[in-house]
């Protein structure tokens, strides 16, 4: 099944407004692994009949990574440029699969003139279910052992712990929490621009420790809700030589799989 993806420019040409803007984010646009998450989420949006738009070539980095690295100049330049585009299209509602984009759009853009209703994709999918526009088939992944890694920028940063878990419960899986979860969850090691640099000297990389904690729950699937966590956890699984037994999946991918999309 091909994907139906329209841009804001397409909607604008038709004189229409989409229901929601899908902020794909840089990882979701370019990273091979993260693109699969993007596509899985689009399939879900298509199945639920959501009229959504992407910015396409008009999207640019939110500036989040530059801000966490300490470069407020580049962040604010990116933010002001993006806000100009978003406000130009009169965007009201945004959904994204990236907690880092979610966080900065929701908490840091308003002061700079960008005021939007911002949703993480797990929140948005929950809404679709509550509105009766989407169902999750709980037979496909039935009884698979699954654990969930809380992304810091969704969890502690924004206190969103339940929306991914509500979706997990609908998948019919055998869900086991790690010892450290929700507000006590351990970071995957990518945040604060660490994704783009080598770690400082220490005894261990953070993602190795976090995947060790995940493996203690004997999972078949490690679910997460962030493209960067996904990379870190996947690398960790490879380090522990468990890549043949354990998959790292975004919740959107699991829903797409459950619904055979």
């Amino acid at each position: 099944m091909g994907l139906t993806v329209k841009t804001m420019a397409d909607f604008f040409a038709e004189g229409k407004q989409p229901e929601v803007l899908f902020w794909v984010g840089s990882a979701g646009s370019y990273d091979e692994r993260a693109k699969k998450i993007t596509k899985a989420f689009v399939k879900i949006l298509n199945q639920a009949g959501v009229e959504f738009a992407c910015l396409g070539t008009e999207e640019s980095s939110t500036g989040d990574a530059a801000k966490r690295a300490g470069n407020e100049f580049i962040f604010q330049m990116q933010a002001l440029m993006n806000i100009e585009v978003l406000n130009g299209y009169e965007v009201k509602k945004i959904v994204t699969c990236d907690p880092h984009s979610y966080n900065t759009l929701k908490n840091e853009y308003p002061e700079l003139g960008g005021n939007y209703e911002v949703y993480h994709h797990t929140q948005f999918i929950n809404q679709l279910i509550k509105e009766g526009r989407l169902n999750i088939d709980d037979s496909v992944l039935k009884s698979k052992r699954l654990t969930f890694h809380d992304p810091c920028y969704l969890g502690r940063a924004n206190d969103v712990y339940e929306s991914p878990r509500e979706l997990i419960r609908r998948l019919g899986v055998n869900f086991n929490e790690m010892k450290r979860h929700k507000r006590n969850a351990l970071c995957c090691g990518a945040g604060g621009a660490q994704m783009f640099k080598e770690p400082e000297k220490g005894d261990m990389d953070i993602n190795i420790l976090r995947t060790k904690e995940a493996l203690e729950t004997k999972p078949q699937i490690i679910a997460t809700g962030c493209p960067y966590c996904n990379t870190m956890m996947t690398d960790g699984i490879k380090f522990h030589e468990k890549e043949s037994q354990v998959e790292v999946k975004d919740i959107a991918e699991l829903i797409a799989e459950a619904n055979n999309l």
Partner: peptide, 24 residues
């Protein structure tokens, strides 16, 4: 390097902004 990329091509890696929607 990451910051230069963001400044030059709007992404943390050296990808062209014109390729943003290629995944679709």
């Amino acid at each position: 390097m990451m910051m230069t990329n963001v400044e030059n091509n709007g992404a943390m890696w050296q990808y062209n902004q014109m390729d943003r929607l290629n995944w679709a």
